[in-house]
Design a binder for these strands. Sequence first.
RNA 1: GCGCCUUUAACUCAGCUGGAUAGAGUAACUGCCUUCUAAGCAGUAAGCCAUAGGUUCGAAUCCUAUAAGGCGCGCCA
Length: 562
Amino acid sequence: MNHIAAASDSARACILEALGRLVAEQAIPAEPLPAFGIEIPADRSHGDFAANAAMVSAKALRMPPRKIAELIVGAMELSGSPFEKVEVAGPGFINFTLSNKWYTDVVRTVLQSGEEYGKTNTGNGTRVLVEFVSANPTGPMHVGNARGGAIGDCLASVLTAAGYETEREFYINDAGNQIEKFATSLEVRYLQACGQDIPMPEDAYQGADIIAHANAFHAEHGDAYAGVDAKERRDALVAFALPKNIQGLKDDLAQYRIHYDTWFPESTLHADGSVTGIIEQLKASGYTYEKDGALWFQAEKLGADKDFVIVRSNGIPTYVVPDIAYHYNKLVTRKFNRAIDILGADHHGYVPRLKAALTALGVDASRLTVVLMQMVAVMRDGKPVKQSKRSGKALTLVTLLEDIPVDAARFFFNLREANSHFEFDLDLAVEKSASNPVYYVQYAHARICSLLRNLAENDISAAAPDTLQLGLLQTKPEHELIRQLALLPAEIDQAARQLDPSRLTKYAVELAALFHKFYDACKVRDAETAELRDARAALCAATGSVLRNVLTLLKVSAPEKM
RNA sequence: GCGCCUUUAACUCAGCUGGAUAGAGUAACUGCCUUCUAAGCAGUAAGCCAUAGGUUCGAAUCCUAUAAGGCGCGCCA
């Protein structure tokens, strides 16, 4: 199904065969040769595939690269390969040109495979857990969560398409310090609602959502909780507000087209003894020591930058302990082969520590991969939009989605790889032009649908697949478009291997560009012959199908009309 | 001080495990709709790939140093 990989393998085989023949004929010495690469040249006038075999072998064979290349090409047998031509070029490249049949096969495969086209079995059923967003349930989600959501969700789709058994998970931080802070914030706002004049602490959550919760609680219970014991009041407030917040997260993410297999509450790790169990296991590993009344973990011995505290002198474990327990749960208890976390780059220092702890617990830390994402700078009217978390006035996911369509948000956040600083231009995201990649891609799809609709309206029915003369597709725009179609399985594989879903948006933009070029250069309805018209219509249908497959992975809509 | 990320055209960015003349879009200028969606296409102009060394047949890509910017480095999470 992967025509690119097959052709590349075939080019390699042709060269190895030719080399074998040359050695047998004693045209070249029988020396062990270094590995060589087959690549797709940037400049297609150099053919479809290029091999550097002659250049890398020059030293071992003590011959000039061009001479070697000429010998190889002279000894090469192309019959049975997908190539029609091979030639020597430049400093000694061996350039292969694909035959017309190869192009025909690609279009046929795309049409036959439909929605399945592009999927691979690279993952071979490996179980992967992708954890992403995992925003604190103490408030609304921010732009960083929006980026993490788009990246994590699409990455999970990509992994599934590449043959991994993938699950999506949200880790709910419903325990620990930030819940205490949440309680404090609610408590102060509630008491204020009861008429008490208490100032809001500096480090409390200042957002309007806290006030709304407190007011709602007050509307329900009045001043009843003003006089009771503080713990009872705080527990009641958290029990009131937290489920609402978690439901809010679910609703907002659903609006963003994200649906998780599992919502995993941190509190369960405390309740079932996992957290204390992990501390015992770490102690048993021999990598802990006591200092200043606290329990430390010797992370430095296991590759991290410095040791860290796991149990404070007040007896309360630090936040890392539940995190360690959580990842232990993923990899050992639930037996996922791999765990992937999407985290903000501000957590980068924490990753080696977590891995060190897993190592101490006897878990192969390479099974955990953390994809770090850099900051998002939101731009409006060419100026950065101020993000102030402290005041609770940061741009939220929900307000972002009020400004721009979900399609645009999901596409834009997957435009750059996670590990690059990203500038999100709000004005561009709603612009309807080629400068806006979402519209550019969607427009290509709508154009195809419209074109096919037009053919139907003119009573031109699609030719039967087995009578199609796809070999008539021979011009440069047609061939380039087909080559791009052929690339999808390889792109999905690469995206899965590099954990980089941004490859898909880049692929989609490139595919759309090649289609627009084809559209401009090649008439379909008014093609010279009915056979050519049918072949081109089939190519359009194939392109539409591939665009839909890519957009489906991104969970971006593929409109039939725009 | 230590660590991570970034630096490519005026702007936003591609450039896959090193390969042939460094690519898109925007902005500027010029063309192309009586014919399938002009939300499109074609063309012109625009670069010391931050700097300096190194590795090799060959470097934007790998290594080292330097500079500039972003982010971390708590008995916070």
